[in-house]
């Protein structure tokens, strides 16, 4: 009779005291087996592949901002040797052309930046140069967005705002086929 009473399921409870141990075990497993990978980087959209050579449209030389990087990681911008720290400011000046100079771009919409490197260029240098060029555009977008809408440019803004800004300052960065002088043997 008493035995039956102890088997009464309504009054029996599962002991949850070991739950913490199980959870700790899982936690330690995940702590040990996982690594937090930083998934950040410079996002780039490549141009589609085409077999035929790109047609060389005649561009006014004032609208082209040619950046060359050689195998020694030196920069040549529009025929002049330049330090990478100067690149961002020079690019911004070229795109906006605030003083209406004859040798800089007519309008931001017409400005074209070309980047050409060597097969022996360091990848780090290439990323740094690309970063500076992108930063020039990002800063211009920020400035314009602050002027127009009072907020900094970001991907969270309404599509119409982003479009109106990118229509005025489109990012045109073309990468030429690299030269081959310093490829490592």
């Amino acid at each position: 009779m008493a035995k039956k009473n102890s088997r009464d399921r309504m009054s029996n409870e599962i002991n949850a005291g070991s739950m913490a141990d199980i959870a700790f075990l899982l936690l330690i497993f995940f702590l040990v087996t996982t690594t937090i990978v930083e998934d950040k980087g410079i996002t780039v959209k490549l141009p589609p592949w085409s077999e035929e050579d790109p047609d060389i449209t005649k561009l006014k030389s004032r609208n082209v901002f040619a950046v060359l990087v050689n195998a020694q990681n030196d920069l040549l911008v529009r025929g002049e040797v330049m330090d990478i720290t100067m690149l961002r400011e020079k690019t911004k000046e070229f795109i906006v052309n605030p003083t209406k100079r004859e040798d800089l771009s007519e309008r931001p919409t017409k400005a074209i930046i070309t980047l050409k490197n060597d097969r022996g260029t360091n990848y780090e240098t290439y990323v740094n140069v690309y970063n500076e060029l992108k930063a020039a555009y990002d800063e211009l977008w920020d400035e314009m967005c602050l002027r127009k809408y009072g907020v900094k440019y970001s991907e969270d803004l309404p599509l119409a705002w982003r479009k109106s800004i990118k229509d005025e300052i489109p990012m045109v960065l073309s990468e030429a086929e690299p030269t081959n002088f310093g490829e490592e043997k």
């Binding site: 097969r119 022996g120 990848y123 690299p178």
Partner: peptide
């Protein structure tokens, strides 16, 4: 890697 030449990346 930062110290890789651009040839293979290209």
């Amino acid at each position: 890697d930062g110290q890789v030449t651009m040839g293979i990346v290209q």
